[in-house]
Design a protein around this nucleic acid. Structure first.
Lengths: 341, 341
DNA sequence: TTGAAAGCGCTAACAG
DNA sequence: CTGTTAGCGCTTTCAA
């Protein structure tokens, strides 16, 4: 019986044309059981003739996987910001896509999990980048029975075996040591306002280090959306106060631009009068004058590790014995030079 | 009857607990018909209790859409190259993701459509960026009955109503006019080797313009993978030949870096001795010394237009009366200054 | 090596 | 406003 017009051919049509049962056609495509070469050829020919393509939704309905890994970028400024401000996210997404595609799966930017108006989409598992403390997206996803892997831990869930951990310790420490060696005595931190581990953990590390080293620290939080203008204002205020810092650490690279602007306005020489460094890297710090020393968060490594870990999780295996850790490194530039040994 | 253990709750379980029929449960989620508030509440409560989530594969099986738009980046150097070389693709992907998410759908990086080992994934439609002439991916997708929208036309299919067109004419023209006004008499073009419209169309436009303007042109093709090193070699060769160009137009921004290196090696002053411009833009041209005049392909506009056009196509509407066109603009920098009027 | 048949979880007539 | 029921297209036992 020929294919009915106006309808996409189904496995039934192919079976009819090839003169076999639908289960045979199914097995030709799923390769789940041996099919004689002749039969396979007949089926393939019939399928080609009809333009048959297995329907992925139907194929996965029976409990199979859909071949899609989800990705959710949590930081509020992801995607919607301008290019330079979102380099972190484009680097991560691009690397995650490359790693996922290499496995034959697709990578999906998942529509807002918390919005009831957004479509519910099928996925085998999901990567959540930069989860907040007790992240509601992670919770919602788990409620949907979607296995999740996080890039950087949820601060409320530090022992999650299904997170790729980011160890900010070594890089933060060498940043501070270098600053100290260069004469830093009064450090100011302009951190973002997001309740994620990057913000939290670096802040804690810096506080601890300063306490131990006997270096004074004034810590400030600024919403990332304030951008360079907001940071310039705050930096100007700090730098003209009676207890002006000699070193400013910023989280976002836009904040770095702002601090640079404030320093210029005050005619401060960098790094002599003021040392600056940033806790992430982008074109804004690389191409600033002077270029700004920054943490490279190794987003490509993080993304690749997340994809690997998620696939591991999907295989049903137990978590790896030791956690997956990525250790950011410092990109030394003239705004805060490395100590020569 | 309580939910069987070890199994995800289905619509049936919810119906049983809520004491309603499965179609009622279905309609509570699909909102396809009115449900009394009380019933809806009972259903929702039961669903919450059981942790029920509608299965997206089953929901779409009936012929509905899956809420996913696919994206395929055709140029060979997409994704796999280094960051600066792939700014084009990250800009496009990021913008496409943002535009898609804004509609409540997800954006999927589609696993290799041509590889039989890659998973077949469900999608409602697909954006193909930078199709080749008679692109086999587009053909394969259409064979799968996936509606396609292209970013930039397939050179073999110039009248495709389902493509977002990129009009390179005005920008190319003003680039060349500026070069002429600055004394250009011998132009060299180092174009990429990809058989896409960007490569083809800009080359043709440049050839035509040079012929009409009586400017000599030597056109060369170089595989994008040769990068700046390859371009430096070719540029050095050209610049030391008896008929050295006074203006070099490159397609990729890596080629621009190479030309710059060759010029430096030959101690040429830019733009006095040699004028340079690029047919796309990236950090490599923005941050070069001197900065290099480039075409901004307005990837964000292209991506947004593709998402809109694809959604239009999915709605079953006829193509728009007039084609969707994006017109790139020139970013004037010192390597080739704009004419003052 | 192949076929028959029972679903997978949900949607959408149709009936009330 | 709600229930019944027949599939959506495919996978997967169970038989042969």
């Amino acid at each position: 019986m020929p294919q009915k017009i106006g309808r996409q051919p189904t496995i039934k049509d192919v079976a009819a044309v090839a003169g076999v049962s639908i289960s045979t056609v199914s097995h030709v495509y799923s390769r789940a059981r041996p099919i004689s070469p002749e039969t396979a050829a007949r089926v393939t020919a019939a399928a080609d003739e009809l333009g048959y393509i297995p329907n992925p939704s139907a194929a996965s309905l029976r409990g199979g996987q859909v071949g899609i890994l989800g990705l959710v970028l949590r930081p509020r400024n992801a995607i919607h910001g301008s290019l330079s401000g979102t380099e972190t996210f484009t680097r991560f997404s691009g690397a995650a896509a490359a790693a996922t595609l290499a496995t034959g799966r697709g990578l999906l930017h998942v529509p807002n999990v918390l919005a009831s108006r957004a479509r519910r989409v099928a996925m085998d598992g999901c990567i959540v980048m930069g989860p907040y403390e007790g992240d509601e997206v992670v919770i919602a996803l788990e409620k949907r029975h979607v296995p999740v892997v996080c890039a950087d831990i949820d601060p409320a869930n530090p022992d999650d075996p299904w997170a790729v951990r980011v160890d900010y310790g070594p890089a933060t420490e060498s940043l501070l040591s270098a600053a100290l060696a260069l004469g830093a005595r009064r450090v100011a931190l302009i951190a973002g306002s997001e309740a994620n581990n990057w913000t939290r953990s670096t802040k804690t590390l810096i506080q601890q280090w300063c306490t131990e080293a006997g270096v004074s620290l004034s810590a400030h939080n600024l919403y990332e959306g304030e951008g360079s203008v907001g940071a310039a204002g705050l930096a100007y205020e700090l730098l003209t106060s009676s207890e002006a810092p000699d070193t400013i650490i910023v989280s976002s690279t836009r904040f770095a631009s702002g601090v640079l602007a404030a320093a210029k306005r005050l005619d401060l020489t960098i790094p002599e009068d003021l040392r600056i460094c940033a806790l992430t890297d982008s074109a804004l710090t690389r191409e600033a004058s002077p270029p700004i020393t920054s943490l490279d968060l190794l987003l490509e490594d993080q993304a690749k590790a997340c994809v690997d870990l998620l696939i591991h999780r999907l295989s049903g295996s137990a978590p790896t014995a030791r956690p997956v850790v990525v250790t950011p490194s410092v990109r030394w530039r003239s705004s805060l030079a490395q100590i020569e040994n």
